[in-house]
């Protein structure tokens, strides 16, 4: 009996506890900085600025009432729904055009001036003309999200489908692959890592630009509410929205890179 109990007790006495093991320096450092930033923010704002300026405690207290409102969920559905729809349309169009550009040199040359000009242009500069054409409507947001996703997806799909190993094409030819087999059976799967990277970039830009359109075109949604809440001197609620946007953006990125690793396990980039 004595040997058994000593065997059980021994590791607990020598090794670190789970808390010590989990709380390494790498994990402790960001926690400490986070707390210090929050403390400086809280104390600095309370001491020097008027009451309506957001502070961590105020944001924390504003979370329940903000999230409980019907308006909040309407905003979430409007903004995230529009982003999802736009990214889906933009990705599909970008993949199609991108494969054509990657496989046919002349199509690539023909479209290069447009793609390069649009790629260099900050898309926020297109918002005024889009507003003029489609009006101060949710459609303006959709159009901008579609363009934001289309460009990186088309460019990265073209890069990916252009650089296929010649062996793949030779094997395809030997088995009598037609053009559409080469495009969608060989080039497209081979370019998957590029395509997912393009969609990831497009998603990030789509989120940012969707918020920009909402504010410039007065379209209801999360971005618009960030600004209206702030104008109503309800800064705490405004920052609850920012917090949700940040969580969404970070979460989407993490999910996309996990999805990419699942979809293309052979590729390490």
């Amino acid at each position: 009996m004595a040997t058994v109990s000593s065997r059980i007790a021994a590791p607990a006495a020598e090794g670190p506890t789970w808390l010590e093991r989990w709380l390494t320096r790498e994990r402790l450092a960001p926690l400490v900085t986070g707390l210090v930033i929050l403390a400086i923010w809280q104390i600095g704002v309370s001491a020097t600025l008027p009451d309506f300026v957001a502070r961590p405690s105020g944001i924390l207290l504003a979370i329940p009432s903000t999230i409980a409102s019907e308006e909040f969920w309407l905003d979430v559905v409007r903004t995230l729904g529009s982003i999802t729809e736009g990214v889906a349309i933009g990705s599909a169009a970008g993949i199609l055009i991108g494969v054509a550009m990657g496989r046919v040199r002349e199509i690539n040359w023909f479209l290069t001036p447009y793609i390069r000009a649009l790629y260099a242009l900050p898309l926020i500069a297109l918002v005024p003309i889009v507003i003029l054409w489609v009006g101060y409507q949710p459609a303006a947001r959709l159009v901008i999200v579609v363009i934001s996703t289309f460009l990186p997806v088309a460019v990265s799909t073209a890069d990916g489908t252009r650089a296929i190993a010649k062996d793949y094409l030779d094997v395809g030819q030997m088995f009598g692959a037609r053009t559409h087999n080469v495009w969608f059976g060989i080039a497209l799967p081979a370019a998957l890592p590029f395509i997912t990277a393009g969609i990831e970039l497009g998603l990030a830009r789509g989120i940012t630009n969707a918020i920009a359109v909402e504010v410039l075109a007065s379209v209801n949604g999360m971005g618009m509410s960030v600004f209206t809440k702030s104008n109503e001197l309800n800064e705490d609620a405004s920052l609850v929205y920012v917090l949700c946007l940040a969580i969404f953006a970070v979460g989407v990125r993490a999910a996309m890179s996990r999805f990419r690793r699942w979809l293309t396990p052979w590729y390490r980039g």
Partner: peptide
């Protein structure tokens, strides 16, 4: 986190401060 967050949404906070 700052990189992923749409910077535009921080504009009202910046302007208040």
């Amino acid at each position: 986190i700052l990189y992923a967050t749409p910077t535009i949404s921080l504009v009202p906070f910046v302007s208040v401060l």
